[in-house]
Write a protein that binds this DNA or RNA. Structure first.
Lengths: 123, 123
DNA sequence: CCGCATCCATCTCGATACTG
DNA sequence: CAGTATCGAGATGGATGCGG
């Protein structure tokens, strides 16, 4: 399978996909939804610091990209569940890999930052 | 090794690391630098569409995080090379995984977007 | 060649208020 | 419960010009 697009070209579709993943909240949402479907306010509660606007927008983008499904249950009041689609499921391992890297190397990064900052301050 | 921090908490260091990777350009730069060190304008040329400001800023962030090293060769005119640090090297596989996912599933995402958009327009 | 400083347009984001 | 609408502030991004 040959790739038509060059990832370093502008407007390359791969870039767009990358940009979606490079969203501040997308990865966290995908990780939250990954185990089991979750309701809107459930996500809002669990992902500390996200505004309802940001959550709403990011969910809509993820839905548009086919990574997350949105299911409305006509109860009163309405219940809406967000779940990982099969396509989204193919991302699970990758998302997990990123999260694990972040957890494992967090300390090193923090150290590097301190070293950098003190070196800067010394000059 | 137990993790003190909750990834879903605000101001959790893992979040900060995640935010760095969630940069529009960081992944592309890491991928560019991964194989061999590159000069500033080399990166600028190869990563189409990046402004020199964005490149400069992102490189500085990556350097601060200890993922990329910056070496100045006192030639005339100056040559500056950016390379992956050992810490940055531990990210190689993860970055590659993301890029591969994007390439492999790009078409599906594009389809999903079209389906979403036409469904929206129909209403 | 490598970058910083500045200016300015754009956009994103959060807070708030309101609807089905 | 699950959003949309609106508005203002702050961050962001590109273009330009200059300095080491």
């Amino acid at each position: 399978m040959a790739y038509i697009y060059d990832i370093y070209e502008e407007n390359c579709p791969t870039r767009q996909v990358l940009d979606r993943l490079a969203d501040k909240w997308a990865l966290l949402i995908l990780d939250q939804v990954q185990a089991a479907p979750k309701r809107f306010n459930h996500l809002r509660r669990d992902i500390k610091g996200i505004s309802q606007k940001a959550l709403s927008q990011t969910l809509k983008k993820l839905e548009r990209d086919g990574l997350v499904s949105r299911t409305v249950y006509p109860s009163v009041p309405v219940t809406v569940e967000y779940a990982l689609t099969p396509l989204g499921g193919t991302l699970k391992d990758t998302v997990a890999a990123i999260a694990h890297w972040a957890e494992r190397h967090m300390d090193s990064v923090l150290e590097a930052q301190q070293a950098y900052d003190t070196a800067l301050a010394a000059r």
